[in-house]
Simulated assay, not measured.
Amino acid sequence: MTDVTHTPLITAIIGTGAIAHAHADAITGLAPRIRLVAVVDLDRSRAEAFAARFAPDAAIYPDPAALFAGESLDLVHICTPPQTHVPLAIAALRAGVPALIEKPTALSLAEMDELVAVSHETGVPALTVFQHRFGAAALRLKQMLDNGALGRPLVATCETLWYRAPEYFDLPWRGRWEIEGGGPTMGHGIHQFDLLLATLGPWAKLTAFAARQALPTDTEDVSMAVVEFENGALATVVNSIVSPRETSRLRFDFEFATVEVEHLYGYRNADWTFTAAPGHEDLAEEWAQNASDAISSHRSQISAIVDALVAEGTPGVSVDDARRTLEFAAATYASAFRGTPIRAGEIAGDDPFLRSMGGDAVPWSPIKPALEKNR
Rank of each mutant, 00 (worst) to 15 (best):
M1N: 11
T2Y: 14
D3V: 07
D3P: 00
D3C: 00
H6M: 04
P8S: 00
L9Y: 07
I10T: 14
T11P: 02
T11W: 01
G17L: 08
A18H: 15
A31Q: 10
R35F: 02
D41L: 10
L42S: 09
L42M: 12
S45K: 15
A49Q: 13
D57G: 15
A59H: 14
Y61Q: 11
A65M: 14
A65W: 14
G70L: 12
I78E: 05
T80A: 07
L100C: 11
L100R: 04
I101P: 03
I101F: 10
E102F: 04
P104Q: 12
P104C: 10
S108R: 06
L109T: 07
E111A: 07
E114K: 04
P125I: 02
V129Y: 05
F130M: 10
L139N: 05
R140P: 14
L141D: 13
Q143C: 09
Q143N: 14
G148Y: 14
G151N: 15
R152T: 15
V155P: 04
T157F: 01
C158T: 09
D170I: 04
W173S: 10
R174S: 07
G175F: 07
G181I: 05
G187K: 03
G187Y: 04
I190S: 06
L195Y: 05
L197E: 12
A198T: 07
W203E: 05
A204V: 02
L206I: 11
A210N: 10
T217F: 03
T219W: 01
E220N: 12
M224Q: 13
F229N: 03
L234W: 04
L234Q: 12
V237Y: 01
N239V: 05
S240P: 01
P244D: 02
P244Y: 03
T247V: 08
S248I: 00
S248P: 03
F274P: 06
G279W: 08
E281W: 09
E286W: 11
N290G: 12
H298G: 09
S300L: 10
Q301C: 06
S303P: 00
A304K: 00
A304H: 08
A308H: 08
A308M: 09
A311Y: 08
E312F: 02
T314G: 00
R323D: 14
R324A: 15
F328Q: 01
A334Y: 02
S335Q: 07
F337P: 01
F337V: 06
F337I: 07
T340L: 08
P341L: 05
R343Q: 11
A348C: 08
A348L: 01
D350L: 02
R355G: 12
M357S: 11
G359F: 00
G359Y: 00
V362F: 07
V362R: 06
I367M: 05
N374C: 04
